[in-house]
């Protein structure tokens, strides 16, 4: 079996899918010999590599930096896997979609923060809050296949480790994974 290169990335998710990846436990030791992890929250590369065989994408697309990243990922990966329910349906991040962004920000940063008279920096005001330097929130959190074509869907919240392992093993063997029966939404 030839080695494959792997990237894993989290967009708007909870890292639970990545933790499930680590729940392969000792099987991770074998896998580490068969794949090169080129980009991942677990390794130090800052820039998405020019070419990766397989990229697992956790989380929904929720802000302008996610949008930029998902396009780069598609362009530079042969196989893109929507990894977990957030990537496939927007799941929990999508629960904010029924409110405008301003209302969501208002709750966290104005209502649930120190009252204005106690503030040292004068910001934010009652009128609203805006952020700079950090990515701007999109109106809605969306599944990744709305932004790019996706090759495989791996449902579950999170997908169980054996399903992740099966998918990678099949890809390593040059076969097309048949995910039926391995995992389900919300599992």
């Amino acid at each position: 079996m030839a080695k494959i290169s792997l990237a894993t990335i989290w967009l708007d998710g909870c890292s639970g899918c990545h933790m499930s990846f680590l729940d392969m436990d000792e099987r991770f030791l074998d896998l580490a010999g068969q794949v090169d992890i080129l980009f991942s929250p677990l390794v130090d590369n800052k820039v998405f590599p020019d070419h990766v065989d397989v990229t697992l994408v956790e989380g929904a697309v929720s802000n302008d930096s996610d949008k930029k990243n998902i396009a780069i990922i598609r362009q530079q990966s042969t196989i893109v896997v929507a990894f977990g329910d957030c990537a496939i349906t927007a799941n929990v991040p999508g629960m904010r979609n029924r409110y405008p962004v301003e209302a969501v920000l208002q709750r966290a940063y104005i209502e649930n923060a120190a009252p204005p008279q106690q503030r040292s920096n004068g910001q934010p005001s009652k009128e609203g809050i805006s952020f700079h330097t950090v990515p701007q929130l999109a109106r809605m959190a969306r599944p990744i296949h709305e932004c790019i074509p996706v090759d495989f869907f791996l449902p579950g919240c999170p997908p169980p480790p054996r399903a992740i392992l099966y998918l990678l093993t099949e890809i390593l063997a040059g076969r097309t994974p048949q995910m039926h029966g391995w995992t389900r939404f919300g599992a």
């Binding site: 890292s15 629960m95 209302a103 969501v104």
Partner: peptide, 25 residues
């Protein structure tokens, strides 16, 4: 930013355990 403090509005209190678990894996 994900907005949990807002998105839970209107949900029954007993769903909060499952929803807030999804803050962090």
């Amino acid at each position: 930013f994900r907005g949990f403090e807002k998105l839970c509005e209107g949900r029954p209190y007993y769903e909060m355990v499952s929803i807030t678990e999804r803050i962090c894996g």
